[in-house]
Design a protein around this nucleic acid. Sequence first.
DNA 1: CTTTTAAATACCCGTTTGGGTAGTAAAAAA
DNA 2: TTTTTTACTACCCAAACGGGTATTTAAAAG
Lengths: 217, 217
Amino acid sequence: METVKSNIIKTAIVEDMRDIREGLVTLINFTDGFTCTGSYRSMEDAIPQIKHSIPDVLLSDIGLPGMSGIEGIQILKEKYPQMTILMLTVYDDDERIFDAICAGASGYLLKRTSPAKILENIREAVSGGAPMSPEVAMRVIKLFREVRPPEKVEYDLTPHETRLLKLLVEGHNYTTAAEELKVSYNTIKFHMRHIYDKLQVHSKSEAVAKALQNRLV
Amino acid sequence: METVKSNIIKTAIVEDMRDIREGLVTLINFTDGFTCTGSYRSMEDAIPQIKHSIPDVLLSDIGLPGMSGIEGIQILKEKYPQMTILMLTVYDDDERIFDAICAGASGYLLKRTSPAKILENIREAVSGGAPMSPEVAMRVIKLFREVRPPEKVEYDLTPHETRLLKLLVEGHNYTTAAEELKVSYNTIKFHMRHIYDKLQVHSKSEAVAKALQNRLV
DNA sequence: CTTTTAAATACCCGTTTGGGTAGTAAAAAA
DNA sequence: TTTTTTACTACCCAAACGGGTATTTAAAAG
């Protein structure tokens, strides 16, 4: 149903349990369009060796002996930013899902995922998707709702005012902000009054607080 | 390959384009395990009528005449919290994805999704998943990374100092903070110096910025 | 070509703040 | 017990800030 992929997808695996690791290697090598270019039992093994053959996709466990999968992929993503990383793990707690995604994982699969689904998800990941097991996706959605940034209130700040506000947030005072913006100290005060009017505040700290809380900067 | 579902999945559709709407109705009614219990061209139609037959899943467009799909599902989710809602839309911008999810959508599919995938995704949604088109999932992941709460840096603030910092964030000045904490003006200054030392800042605004940016309050 | 509007600059003055020093009271550690 | 630590209070002074008024310049509107 799909057209043939132009290239074989090079996949590597980091998984400490031998049965699972070798099962995945076999699965991948026996499937058209995939090849396994490395399998490692720990991040300590994977990180130095992976440079000999950088995969398109890395499937990694989280619970590994020594360095955790999350720490590991952070290091690997730093060195090989183009590498797509998929977690394949038994953990489905919010904390680890969050950490893995922030560490650079493009997807998060639970180990009970069927072989066919795993292959499909690898394909989806290399073509720019972010495959997740249904439970994980639901957790991500729920976390997403929790961290919803405050509704953007519009205060109609001019570009100048926004720029100044950003400087205040960075800790500038009127004098240094004036230098930064190459205007006079009094011009800064001029803009400040407008900012205060628009934000309905009466001090620099309040403006900074409002700017940060309402994502104005 | 799957065991038969215990119940037929009752699905309803809100979509203004007649061809698409009728295509979906046909697709659903001609598939085993699904039945279409309603199809509406707008939220204004759907909201009053849907009570006659509450579906398990609602497939909704976003770009509708009159009330937008996002406003609509917010109302529907309020009335029928158990109803699973899937967006089916052409929009894949961050803003709408975010809004839809926060309004109660459990999934977000792009209209180019194949009929087979749509059915699969409906099944996934009713069984507790959160199906998303690959591009959408990737955007969700990226948004997720952006809103990552900054790693908690510990500044060893005492409870008193933290409370004061919170007051500053709320816009208090030394005088009103002193009243609030029932201590003298000079005590506020005393604590401020300690806060500044610990946060390594030299102004109230900087302290407020650091407090907000590092979730100290 | 005026009129209007927006951005920039300036001065004044009272208030707030930042930082220095110094002292007291109460609780915790030695 | 004495010592140390922690919380609190006080005074001083220079710097930063908030808000008032007013002028200049440049662009936009009429």
